[in-house]
Amino acid sequence: MNTDPVATHPDLQLITLDVNGERYDVVTEPRRTLVDVLRHELRLTGTHVGCEHGICGACTVLVDERPVRACLMFAAQAEGARIRTVESLADSDNRLSDLQRAFSEHHALQCGFCTPGFLMLAEGFLGERPEASKEEIREVVAANLCRCTGYQTIVEAIEACATARRGACVTPCIPDSPADKEH
């Protein structure tokens, strides 16, 4: 068959995906990236597209509980894996998770465009390394780009959430250095 990109109608493919615990069947071109299928076929638009070359991290989702770039993966490659997006974080009554609440409390988002990516990055990371130190968290936060916050409050929010989850602290808002919170 002629596969010239300009002259032929590309083949379609049935792709079955497990997203946030639901099964979806999609008939689409194999060249569709996972993020495009999530957003435009499944209409899960919480996952965003920022660069399509794997650097900004706005499209970060969990594949088998590990954070990955959904722009660097074809949807076809995700068959058989469990995918989780930002839409999975709040509970069935739309109550935000502790991680989401920590982001709000620490003003870790402004325009909110990068936020789903950071949330899923942190969700996957803390799931694997609940004991992570602030420096480890900072290194992981360096995986994604945010243009609004300067990152400090994102690191603080994730650390507060991790601390609270470990039960080492009753309130999740004690900053490292009180001086940093002077008004």
Binding site: N94, S104, L109, P116
Partner: peptide
């Protein structure tokens, strides 16, 4: 006062509506 942001819940839940979300 540092009032919690009205924008946050929808943006955190992935329910913001950006221009590429318009279909």
């Amino acid at each position: 006062k540092a009032v919690r942001r009205r924008e946050d819940p929808r943006l955190l839940a992935g329910r913001g509506r950006f221009v590429d979300d318009v279909a």
